[in-house]
Every structure is written in structure tokens, then in C-alpha cells.
Amino acid sequence: MDWATLAVVWFLLEGALLMGYAILDGFDLGVGILHPFVPRTDQERRIAINAIGPVWDGNEVWLVTFGGALFAAFPEAYATVFSGFYTAFMLLLAALIARAVSMEFRSKVEGRGWRRFWDWLFFGGSAVATLLFGVAVGNAMIGIPLDVAGNFTGTLFDQLKPYPVLVGLMTVALFAMHGGLYLYLKTEGDFQERLRDWLWRSWGIFLVFYMLTTMYTLALVPRATSNFERWPWAALFVVAGVLAVANIPRCLHWGQPFQAFASSGTVIATLVMLFGLALYPNLVTASNDPANSVTIFSAASSPKTLTIMLIIALIGMPFVLAYTSIIYWVFRGKVQLDEHSY
């Protein structure tokens, strides 16, 4: 394959990793966001945490691999994004650390204060991480100021404009809904009943943010739709997304929670695809001067590295899908607490 094709393939693969991460860790983060609101007793909190207990770590690996692959395939973009969003990334790291250790530490001591403390950290970590992911996507959509070497030249406040913050809030609502639907599949009885109300609530909140974000994007972010002229069929993603959003209340009403969960996964998938479509061929858009944008062609590694990585991915990914399926199969069904649970 020639260099340009390889770069496009890696752009698509990065998109697939991001999509995998958003769908899978999205529900883990969502369970965290709902943590102070839905479960009422210690046992219910344990059920919520153990619903994601065996899988969250593997889901986070999608992010780690996304980062590693970005470093390898598009080092210029990796360097620009990670150093440009320095403070945001440091907060994100703190949030991901809090999320990871709170589940582990919480279960080890039975004191009420101890558990409360880690519960709040679990919520805080999940909510802040989600918000930051959304803000990052928003910033990528509108672009950030870059110099000719691709280094960020703005301040932190350039990254907190209304649009990124709006996308951040929408992401929090989306993941909360997604996590709620996942939890609904893993719980039963009274807990599940209460969860129902929260599903409707989170869907409503998400809908408001979804519509606001869509309007804002269409009105004020021209890049977002510029590629539609080239590929008109891309509008199908929009249609699929809207249909999936609409399908969720229908499924909730008719008692098809799995289909509802699949629909929220589809919503996430379409949003990631539209995001990729809005970016292409840029990875980081320079808001000051389009010539300074980091594109997939200017940021790509050598064809040799891209080919080696492709071979690594082709060998590795079937294994990854195999373990992932095994784990989800072994831990299928409703959460059952035993002596090994969190």
C-alpha cells in the first residue's frame, strides 16, 4: 500500500479504537456518574461496581491502545494534542487514577466513612474524565491555535469555550444514559425498578444536549459538514444516530432493555463517525491558520512503521476480540456478589 492509503487506514483504525473505547468504557464511566444517584444501600453500590468490576480494566485498555497507536502512527498529532492540552490531560489522569483505585480500595474495608469516601471519588473520577473527553472532542471540532511546528500557542482558556463545554456536558449525559442501560441489564428487583426512572431522566437530559449540540454545530462549526459535499452518503450516519436516539424510549416502553443498550451504543458509534468525518483529513485543526493544521498525511509515521503496525494489529486484534468475548460470556447475566467480588 502507498503511504497515503496507509495513513487513511490508520486514521480509520484509530477511529475504530476510539469507538471501541467510547462504547465500552462509556458504560463504565456512566455507571460511575450514576453512582451517587441510583444505588441506595451498600449492597446496591457493590452491585453497581461489580457490574463493571470484571470488565472496566479491559475497556480502559482501548484508550491505552488508542494513545499508543496515535503515538506510533501519527507522532506529530500525539505530541501536539497531548502537550497542547496539558492541564486537561493532567486532570484526566487524576480522574482515571481516582476511578481505578476507588473500586479496588472501597471494597477492602467495611467502615462507612471509608466506603463513602471512595464512592465519591469513584463518581468524581468518572464524571470528570467523561466531561474532559467531551471537551477534548469539542476543541478538536473547532480547532486550537498552533504554530508552524504544530505546538499549541494558546492558553487554557482557549480550550474552555462554550462549544467544547457543551459537547462535554452532552457526553456526560450520553454516558450516564449508556451506563444506566448497562446497569439495567445487570440488575434485578427494586434496584432495577428505580433505575428505570433514571433511564428516562438521563435520556431526556441527553436529548436536550444532543439537540443543542447539533444546532450549534450546524450553525457555527462549518467544518463539521464540509466533507458531506464530498460523501453525501455520510448523511446516513446522522439519520442512523437520530433513529437510534429515538429507539431508546421505544425499547424502554416495550421492555427491550438490550435493544435500548444497543441503540445507545449505536448513538455513540455514529457520533464518533461524524467526529472523524468532520476532522478528515485533519487530526488537529489550527484555528489561527489552516496551513498549520496537523493532517493525517503530515503527521503520519513512515510507510514502513505503518505497515509493521498494521501487521501487529492484524495479528493482535483477533486475540483481543476473543478474550473480550470470553470475559463478557463468563460474566454474563445478572450481577452475583460472592467472596471474590469488590
Binding site: 485498555v61 491505552v64 491502545t65 494513545g67 499508543g68 497507536a69 503515538f71 506510533a72 502512527a73 507522532p75 500525539y78 509515521s301 512503521t305 509493521i308 503496525m309 501487529i312 494489529a313 493482535g316 486484534m317 486475540f319 483481543v320
Partner: peptide, 11 residues
């Protein structure tokens, strides 16, 4: 360096 890191993630 990135390819080694990505291999670490995948494998």
C-alpha cells in the same frame, strides 16, 4: 518508540 508501545497495548 511508538510501535513498541502500541505492540505492548495490543499484545
Amino acid at each position: 518508540f511508538g510501535s513498541a508501545l502500541a505492540a505492548e497495548g495490543i499484545f
